[in-house]
């Protein structure tokens, strides 16, 4: 029993023990991490056996890439964090076949090698492996590189559903004309948007003019009779803070004045015509559909006169 034997026994115990946990653990993620331990112990076995490059490639490729890929797959398939109850089939046939395979292989190998002492080879270097790969085994190496490329392309093609997807025969064949984006609207929609913008600009101008006239009237009539010092300070602070808002139409201040006007302000999409039209439609289904088409025409005709009444929208 040499040092190499003891090392191999210990590493083999670690590898086999964690492999047992890989195939029996009820946590998906724990199985992945036990696989890391098992593969690391096998890499240690490679080191003891003198295959240094294989050991480091094992660490790089298996522990660094394959297990990470498996754990990514565990995450992408939304595996539960706790133990999964329905992870296993009934154990008896699998245990029977697995135990039979293990027993057969063990008996075969023990019978073949007995307790024969072998001379441990000198540790292999990357130079020797490189000479062999690019000397005697260069053709399998190239074939393997092509296979790796094919696997790469195949994985990409499998992962992307838009590559190689055949069109659905049940789907309507309107896929040739994509829906118009927000940039290229039709002429009608563009004209409507321009009308809306013009109405909004006119409403803002009107509100500003109203406010200017109101303040001018208040100043001319002397509507501020008694102004204490606190009021002056408050107004100054108000000017500092709210000057930007005062420049625009103030909603809270102008709303009661707007309600006094004969023509109430109409917010976009909530005109009275729509409300009065929506009520009988919900109650009486027998309303003729021609009324819907007849209504927008007069409102569109009176649009130049009343630019802020948008009865034809919606």
């Amino acid at each position: 029993m040499t040092v190499a034997d003891a090392l191999m026994l210990a590493l083999g115990a670690i590898a086999v023990g964690s492999a047992v946990f890989v195939v029996t653990s009820s946590h998906l993620v724990r199985a992945g991490f036990y696989l890391v331990v098992s593969l690391g112990a096998i890499a240690g076995l490679y080191l003891v056996l003198g295959a240094e490059l294989v050991a480091w490639v094992q660490i790089l490729v298996y522990v660094g890439a394959v297990v990470v890929l498996l754990l990514f797959a565990v995450m992408l398939t939304r595996a539960p964090i706790g133990p999964s109850p329905d992870l296993d089939r009934p154990a008896l046939p699998a245990a029977l076949i697995g135990g039979g395979v293990g027993l057969g292989l063990t008996v075969l190998l023990v019978d073949a090698f007995r307790w024969t002492e072998y001379e441990l080879p000198p540790p292999g270097t990357g130079r020797r492996v490189g000479e062999q790969i690019f000397g005697a085994w260069v053709l399998p190496f190239e074939v393997l590189s092509i296979l790796l490329l094919a696997a790469l392309v195949g994985a990409i093609v499998l992962s992307r559903p838009d590559i190689g997807a055949r069109p659905d025969p049940n789907a309507p064949a309107d896929t040739d004309t994509p829906p118009p984006g927000p940039v290229d609207e039709s002429d009608e929609v563009r004209a409507r948007l321009e009308r809306i913008a013009a109405r909004q600009a006119a409403a803002q101008d009107r509100l500003r003019a109203q406010r200017a006239a109101e303040t001018a009237a208040a100043e001319s009539t002397g509507a501020a009779p008694v102004k204490t010092r606190e009021d002056v300070l408050k107004e100054q602070a108000h000017d500092v803070v709210f000057r930007a808002r005062e420049a625009g139409p103030a909603l809270g201040a102008t709303q009661p004045e707007m309600s006094d006007q004969a023509r109430p302000r109409v917010i976009e999409g909530t005109s009275r015509e729509n409300q009065t039209r929506a009520l009988p439609r919900g109650e009486d289904k027998a309303l003729p559909r021609g009324e819907d088409k007849a209504l927008p025409a007069p409102s569109k005709r009176e649009l130049p006169k009343a630019p802020d009444r948008d009865g034809e929208e919606a």
Partner: peptide, 24 residues
Amino acid sequence: MHAVIPYVIAGLLFALGVYGVLRR
């Protein structure tokens, strides 16, 4: 070095793999 040790370890690992493929 006794060669039977890594061989038996490999055999046990293969059996565990077979068991896992059939069980999971």
